[in-house]
Amino acid sequence: MKTLVIAEHDNAALAPATLNVLAAAARLGGEVDLLVAGQDCRAVAEVAAAVAGVARVILVDAPAYKDQLAENLAALVVAQVRTKSYGAVLAAASAFGKNLAPRVAALLDVAQVSDVVSITAVGRYVRPIYAGNVLVSVESDEPVQVLTVRPTSFDAVAATGGAATVEEAQAEADLGLSRLVGRALSKSERPELGSAAIVVSGGRGLGNGDNYQQVLAPLADRLGAALGASRAAVDAGYVPNDYQVGQTGKIVAPGLYLAVGISGAIQHLAGMKDSKVIVAINKDPDAPIFQVADYGLVGDLFEAVPQLTASLAS
């Protein structure tokens, strides 16, 4: 069986999550091809060709794919599956993959399995439901297995060491069903939230956006950490939406997660409870976050966090 992985990229760089999806694809056995569809994205295809375990990079370079619109991409993926007889299609359970994969599955008339965290064989998966409170084993006999996979559950394959061929493939028609008007992407010098080794996350306890920046950012800088947030902090406008960790935000599993002024609602825990070490700083000794924290500090964050930052400097 051959597997097609959908590369996530911005026409310039390959998203790190793609390396985790390739690791999941390897669990299915058989050859793994990687589809790089975009415009002026040959550089991405060349980087992708060096990734360990990729047999072929399928490069489709056309204006219809420039903005990664789901309608055009789904039609392309389906055409590739039909002409090349792929038995599985995998994408990351990221905003990109979640948007695209169900459309692919629908056009193939197969049931997709979402957010796979473990693969034992083709058609044998485990995925979380109910905000991660339940793990369900799923069996599928679908002729094409369409999966989104949770990147933090699979260790990334090596970015180098591979020697895939780059094959160009035909673009499909531009369906014109949607069009990009614009993007407002957060720019940050910090590591990417989804793959950072350390995450410093703030909640409603920070009180406002200025406090968030003044109290948490120096700690994150000192630790070389990514910044995250609870939904309450995002809803209140302390930080942009892409900081949100949780059931409906990003799933993270860093080596160290510091939850500051976050109560620990199940929807938040769903996004971070697979972190290796969890630290909670909260003034409420009964806050549920302490039930998952390896190290809990009961106290006022406005005192504790600056102290922590200062003691890391020395």
Binding site: A111, L135, D141, E142
Partner: peptide, 17 residues
């Protein structure tokens, strides 16, 4: 189309300090 064969609760994190 999919069979849900087994449901389980994830391993609880061990209590911290």
């Amino acid at each position: 189309r999919l069979r849900h064969t087994r449901h389980a609760e994830p391993e609880a994190r061990k209590a911290g300090i």
